[in-house]
Design a binder for these strands. Structure first.
Length: 471
RNA sequence: GGUCCCAUCGUCUAGCGGUCAGGACGCUGGCCUCUCACGCCGGAAACCCGGGUUCGAUUCCCGGUGGGAUCACCA
């Protein structure tokens, strides 16, 4: 008889002390992907026990970023500050069972112990003074876990392998402060136990306190979860990612015009691999993600590669999928655009040449402007008197087109080329400047088509007047 | 400093004893071309060092070096 297979339950536990940053997003992603892949559950828990640094604005920002990334949770968000009574319950159990004890040493006394140990060349630790005093709860007592002083605790880490820590290195750490609130290690373990978390993937900055947490699991007789510690994401100077490395919150990347799918694709490849494959869409990722191919070494965040991936994702999307996000960025440029056929057409012409949505919005701006503004250098170079016949003739001929199609436009310019003797290469740039104001844009025909007959003629005629006025 | 982790092109990585060490980004030569891109073809570019183990090490073991993390009544 096969035992029932337990569903995988993972979690993401950010502390709301700032925005969701790249590293956090990546661990959230790993946990989420693994839960989705195994048809398990993904729990969101807010670790807000640090009253001084936690803010509700941060909570909102983190939730918003997760939603934007499309990382959804099945359970939560739970808030640790609302669970103190649960921690108390377990702390009492620990005291009753002799695994924890009250300690009346003051912070100053403990500092002195550390200094003393350091002076002797030992690791600064609490010396266990109150360990066997059997103290009762007092006004300023903390609760400490009675940790074994011999043997070793080994973390069977699925990414780092077995890692052993001597128990003599671990002192009787505090699990409840003198103000009665639970400490981090205790709260985390109790939460993970009570929420049924059985798979913990987190940054390897947590590897070192994992043995402490394991000691709590043991003292409680609870099942040990599976641990996997993924390496940190570093900045370009190979130090831990921080403000000075430029943008690090996922909100900023959204503003810079990145697609959530590209973000996810990039993040997952930073420390995980699937052979040589670089491009993944969401469904595919869920399908092929695994824990076996998580990397063991730290990696640097590379915006160029993110950019390249973003441009590929932009190309793979349908214009309809891009319209909503693009409108957001057009709006940032002060352009009022609608999700209509005109915008869809504009997107189609810009899709292959935009690395970000910001670029796309900037490139699309000319479509929406009432008046074309000429770039000085472009106008000086291309809006010249010898182009007057070409521009006048094209405006005149386009005016007669019905229907206004790609083929019709081609015919017009084929005629003008023959008539004037100019090569298309000679007239394309002046035309482009007339219509967009700049020398860079989508292909002439597709662009004129999207712009529409009326606007096209109007802009060409404006260029004609511009050249005449200049002369 | 103690403890722990890590080490393949500049960067992200594949590799799981025998490979011309593969891919991607970036860089670069060319093609395509109405601009910019896309796309296509080509190039330069890596196994940190020293010992072992082995017929044979990028791969396994040890040491060194380098980088990172962590040492709270923070999380």
């Amino acid at each position: 008889m096969n035992p029932p297979i337990k569903p995988i339950v993972t979690r993401f536990p950010p502390s709301p002390t700032g925005y969701l940053h790249i590293g956090g997003a990546r661990t959230a992603l790993f946990n989420w992907l693994y839960a989705r892949k195994t048809k398990g559950r993904f729990v969101l828990r807010i670790e807000d026990t640090d009253a001084a640094r936690s803010t509700s604005e941060s909570v909102d920002a983190i939730l918003e970023s997760l939603e934007w990334l499309g990382i959804d949770w099945d359970d939560g968000p739970y808030f640790q500050t609302r669970r103190y009574h649960i921690y108390d319950e377990y702390i009492e159990k620990l005291i009753e069972s002799g695994h924890a004890y009250y300690c009346s040493c003051t912070p100053d006394e403990v500092d002195a112990m550390r200094e003393e140990a350091k002076a002797k060349g030992l690791k600064p630790m609490y010396n266990g003074k109150c360990r066997n005093l059997n103290l009762k709860k007092g006004p300023d007592t903390v609760v400490r876990l009675k940790t074994p002083d011999s043997g070793a605790t080994v973390v069977e880490d699925i990414v780092k392998g077995d890692t052993a820590f001597r128990n003599s290195e671990i002192d009787d750490f505090i699990i409840r402060r003198s103000d009665g609130s639970a400490m981090y290690n205790l709260a985390v373990v109790i939460d993970d136990i009570t929420m049924g978390i059985n798979t913990i993937i987190r940054g390897d900055d947590h590897l070192i306190n994992t043995p402490k947490q394991m000691l709590i699991y043991s003292a409680l007789g609870a099942d040990m979860p599976i641990f996997g510690h993924v390496p940190m994401v570093l900045g370009s100077d190979k130090t831990r990612l921080s403000k000075r490395h430029g943008a690090m919150s996922v909100g900023e990347y959204r503003k810079m015009g990145f697609l959530p799918d590209a973000m996810i694709n990039y993040l997952v490849r930073l420390g995980w691999s699937h052979g040589d494959q670089e491009f993944f869409d969401r469904a595919e990722l869920i399908d092929v993600f695994d824990l076996e191919h998580l990397g063991r070494s730290a990696s640097m965040f590379d915006t160029d590669k993110l950019m390249a991936l973003n441009s590929k994702h932009i190309q793979k999307k349908t214009p309809e999928e891009l319209a909503g996000p693009l409108l957001f960025h057009l709006n940032d440029l002060g352009i009022e655009a609608k999700n209509d056929a005109f915008t869809i057409g504009a997107i189609q012409t810009l899709q292959p040449r935009s690395k970000t949505l910001v670029e796309m919005a900037e490139g699309a701006a000319f479509y929406y402007k009432d008046e074309v503004e000429y770039d000085k250098t472009a106008a000086d170079k291309f809006l010249l008197p010898d182009m007057l016949p070409v521009l006048e003739k094209s405006a005149e001929m386009i005016d007669t087109l019905d229907p206004y199609t790609h083929e019709a436009l081609e015919t017009v310019f084929k005629f003008i080329i023959e008539e004037t003797g100019h090569k298309f290469g000679k007239i394309a740039q002046p035309l482009r400047v007339a219509v967009t104001g700049t020398t860079v844009s989508p292909g002439i025909f597709e662009m004129l088509l999207v712009l529409g007959k009326e606007k096209t003629i109007k802009r060409i005629r404006k260029a004609v007047r511009f050249i005449q006025d200049k002369a």
